[in-house]
Design a protein around this nucleic acid. Structure first.
Lengths: 167, 167
DNA sequence: ATGATTATTTGACGTGTCTATATAGATTTG
DNA sequence: CAAATCTATATAGACACGTCAAATAATCAT
């Protein structure tokens, strides 16, 4: 650090860490630009419901890392706004399945469009070779997201399964 | 839609829109995984302060899209937590410059590390060719972020200049 | 039938936000 | 150049939201 010129990290050029940093910066940038009209918890919930379908309240609670009553009131609010609804769980009369309504799906789609429109505009501003390289990275980006979702779902199952599946 | 096989979008293959969607999904995924210990507004503020240095309260307010008193109390809180501090603005004794403290910078860095660690792990899980393609897209990713920041800063200036420069 | 699980209710507290108003400093102008 | 006006921030008061822990009610499982 004292002579900043000639000593690059000698041993470890931490693999994907420069790409990770760029991706994280992109995340921060997009987050900073998206409308802040809903809370992080609501956004996460709506995304999850859209991606993975109807979910139990308890499931949502562990997934979001909040207490069950918090989810109850969260769902109350979503239901009140017409974005989600409670359905009976056929397999357990105590349970409830929270599902997006048509309006909820529309809301998620519209919100996503805000983000993707911005990104399209930015991508269109890239020099041709960079645009090409980004297009070539599409499968990689999709895999990263898929891996993360698989990991999240797995973790989830492990968390909830303590008293649910593994008996 | 009726015969889903043979009709690809005939006219417009919306340019970067598939990449945009993948990037947005990645954003949503990372957001859903990051700790929700601070509000979106705080996160955005800290990021901005780190990236662009000390900022006026009014500037932050327009930038964040909230009322000025909201920023005052936001800064009160940050100051109370030791993450930011108020400094006198040398050019205007009414004004205040909000700046990150060392602890604030550390906090932002640590938080970023949570995100980048996750991303590194995911990238390490990619097949070699995809990892390569992602690495090749690094300049593109960096440009996208840079373009967005330039655009944000410019918009900002325009917004505040309405009653400040153009008289 | 007893014990565990699912969700809701209740009551509380901190935060984030707003509008309206006050105060101190800057700027314009008669 | 002093008064009037504008600007930057702070204060006050209000309200919605997100969150929690504890208690309750319904249902499931053994």
């Amino acid at each position: 650090m004292l002579n900043g010129v000639s000593d690059q990290p000698p041993a470890e050029p931490p693999e994907g860490s420069d790409v990770a940093l760029a991706l994280y910066s992109l995340v921060a940038m997009v987050v900073g630009i998206m409308p802040r009209d809903i809370s992080l918890t609501v956004a996460t919930t709506l995304n999850l419901l859209e991606r993975a379908g109807p979910q139990r309240i308890t499931h949502l609670a562990t997934r979001l890392g909040v207490a069950q009553p918090s989810v109850t009131s969260l769902v109350d609010k979503l239901e009140h706004e017409g974005l989600a609804e409670r359905r009976a769980d056929p397999t357990d009369a105590r349970g409830v399945l929270v599902a997006l309504t048509a309006a909820g799906r529309r809301y998620v789609r519209d919100r996503r469009k805000v983000g993707t429109d911005l990104l399209v505009e930015l991508i269109d501003g890239l020099p041709a070779d960079q645009a090409r390289s980004l297009r070539a990275a599409l499968p990689a980006l999709e895999t990263v997201v898929a891996l993360a979702h698989r990991r999240a779902d797995r973790t989830d199952r492990l968390a909830t399964s303590v008293g649910e599946v593994q008996r």
